[in-house]
Design a protein around this nucleic acid. Structure first.
Length: 563
RNA sequence: GCGCCUGUAGCUCAGCUGGAUAGAGCAGUAGCCUUCUAAGCUAUUGGUCGGGGGUUCAAAUCCUCCCAGGCGCGCCA
């Protein structure tokens, strides 16, 4: 739609240039925008304002000239020059009514596009350590990452979702020691309790399970606890599997799936970590200092150099991170998006610097990061503290159990990325207008209810017949709803491009509002005796239901048929 | 101290990347169910867009300096 209008304006400008009314190479990009106010038409261009100076004419005068030079088009009903010199386009009714036909024909494909053109993109998210259950912060990452995957897939990308499983390193040692201590009856606070040990109740449950000799069936591993408190290796393997299984269950309850689980330990096993060190040293970006091996990341924009190999010979987390991202690059992902909590933002420059030092031709801004601040949870107006170590804790699963998956996902994804998110449990539980999840789902359920009632009354409805009567959709509320539906493909495309799922959530709330307003409008009834009117209104209702269902699916929220 | 993020109605937040009179929901006020789901609708009150300066036809949006809050600045991840 926009492209077609831009084409028309381009033709007009060329015609004016030919007549000498405009300089030949105006060099201004033609922009078309959705108007905010209905009185300004459907679309508007500021081209006359931005060209006025170069043309040596007053903006309104220039706008008039452009309008006069615009070719005729069936899309356009009429054109206005308004305000300081905007050109407002009022689209013909046919063009907005036609969206109903498009939606009914394309069904769930409506709104999808192919800008990605089958290119590969990887989205890494959650990537929680197997040292405890997932908390609400992970939930935000999961909701964002999964929605982002769906948006990218809807715009033609070949998406692979990945969970980086941090099953090696010091945190895991700490976990194993904490479990061992519990096995031996040592409790947090005792003198024998390991420093910085994990204190949560789940550690106690875990050790009891280990001592019983339980079998753990996780996604990728099956382990039997030996029950021997002295066997730290056995404890470690059991604990990792046990917590892995817990996280699998959390993610399943959240309806989040990953295509690939990548184990950090595999980077050690196949020598990738060692090769990465050698490559970095070979490239001359390393030096030894105080018995540690450093990478000169300051050569690549970092504010200080980083240790790769510690004095004790172990690697810092940073090095496997670089090896991991090299692996992603070698797998052919030209585009990688890492979704992380903002508390990890210092890794961004570090990982990129490490990749640059490899001298593999990786772009300096690769990979992309989506960083989200952490989540605070409030209940009854009071904050619920999150602390894994201390064990007072709102897990993701607690939240799903209490408020449901749909509400949890919606609230975690509906806020702008950069904002600190306050999850209000009471709000998520409320079943009124305050709660946008129910508001949107209710609109969808109503469209389904209309269809059920239609069948009950013995009428039939066929999309092919119905679309012939779309011109009867003349009410103000109907026009508003149509205008909203027309926008859906742009909303999806923009949300994917800017990596902002929340704009889909906002759009759906507005769409649901337009639908409810129409449904409740004076003298408005969908299921009328008059077949032409009934056909058209059912078509509009069905189209709205389809777009709501598609949009909710992008957020991972269900669209119930009745409530 | 340095870096990143945030500041918009009493509250929770949008604001389509520079456009026209800054918008929703909640809360407040006044109305709407013998009619397709009232988990809904209609009307209405409410603003120095944190503050100052700058850029231009045009700034909540871009630049700059302050103020306030969050996060980070480990041989932790």
């Amino acid at each position: 739609m926009k492209e077609q209008l831009i084409g028309l304006i381009d033709q007009a400008l060329a015609a004016l240039a030919e007549r000498g009314e405009l300089p030949e190479a105006h060099g201004s990009e033609i922009k078309i925008e959705r108007t905010r106010d209905k009185r300004h038409g459907d679309l508007a261009s500021n081209i006359a304002l931005s060209l006025a100076k170069k043309a040596g004419k007053k903006p309104r005068e220039l706008a008039q000239l452009i309008c006069a030079a615009l070719p005729e088009s069936p899309l356009i009903q009429h054109i206005d020059v308004a305000g300081p010199g905007f050109i407002n386009f009022f689209l013909s009714e046919d063009s907005s009514q036609a969206v109903v036909r498009d939606i009914l024909e394309q069904a769930e494909r409506f709104g999808r596009s192919n800008v990605g053109n089958g290119r590969k993109v990887q989205v890494e998210f959650v990537s929680a350590n197997p040292t405890g259950p997932l908390h609400v912060g992970h939930g935000r990452g999961a909701a964002l990452g999964d929605s982002l995957c769906r948006l990218l897939a809807a715009t033609g990308w070949d998406v692979s979702s990945e969970f980086y499983y941090n099953d090696a390193g010091a945190q895991i040692d700490k976990l194993a020691l904490s479990v061992q201590a519990r096995c031996r009856g040592v409790a947090p606070g005792d003198s024998a309790w390991p420093e910085d040990g994990y204190q949560g109740d789940y550690i106690r449950d875990l050790s009891a399970s280990y001592l019983r000799g339980d079998t753990v069936d996780a996604e990728d591993r099956h382990i039997v606890g030996s029950g021997n408190p002295d066997d730290l290796e056995s404890i470690r393997a059991f604990a990792v599997a046990y917590l892995r299984r817990e996280q699998d269950l959390d993610l399943k309850a959240f309806a989040v799936n990953f295509d690939v689980y990548f184990l950090e330990s595999s980077l050690y096993e196949d020598g990738a970590v060692e090769q990465t060190v050698q490559r970095l040293q070979g490239n001359g970006h390393c030096y030894e200092k105080e018995a540690a091996l450093w990478l000169r990341t300051t050569d690549f924009g970092d504010d200080k150099d980083r240790v790769m190999r510690k004095r004790d010979g172990g690697y810092t987390y940073f090095l496997p991170d670089v090896a991991y991202h090299l692996n992603k690059w070698q797998r052919g992902f030209e585009r990688v998006i890492n979704v992380q909590g903002a508390d990890h933002h210092s890794t961004v420059t570090r990982v990129r610097a490490g990749l640059q030092a490899l001298e593999k031709g990786i772009p300096a801004a690769w990979p992309d990061y989506v960083l989200h601040p952490m989540v605070t949870v409030i209940r009854d107006g009071k904050e619920v503290k999150l602390s894994k170590r201390a064990g007072s804790y709102v897990t993701l699963r607690d939240l799903i159990d209490e408020v449901g998956r749909d509400a949890t996902r919606y609230f975690l994804v509906a806020r702008a990325l950069g904002s600190q998110l306050t999850f209000d449990i009471n709000l998520a539980l409320s079943q009124t207008n305050d709660n946008p999840v129910y508001y949107i789902q209710y609109a969808h359920a109503r469209t389904c209810s209309v269809m059920r009632k239609l069948v009950q009354q013995g009428w039939d409805w066929q999309p092919e017949r119905a679309v012939q009567h779309l011109s009867t959709l003349q009410g103000e509320e109907e026009k508003t709803l149509l205008r909203r539906l027309v926008r859906y493909p742009e909303v999806v495309a923009n949300a994917a491009h800017h990596r902002e799922p929340h704009s889909v959530a906002n759009y759906l709330r507005e769409l649901a509002g337009d639908f409810h307003a129409w449904y409740n409008a004076d003298n408005m009834k969908i299921l009328l005796e008059d077949q032409a009117l009934r056909d058209a209104r059912v078509a509009l209702s069905q189209a709205t239901g389809q777009v709501i269902a598609s949009g909710l699916d992008l957020l991972g929220v269900s669209a119930p048929e009745e409530m």
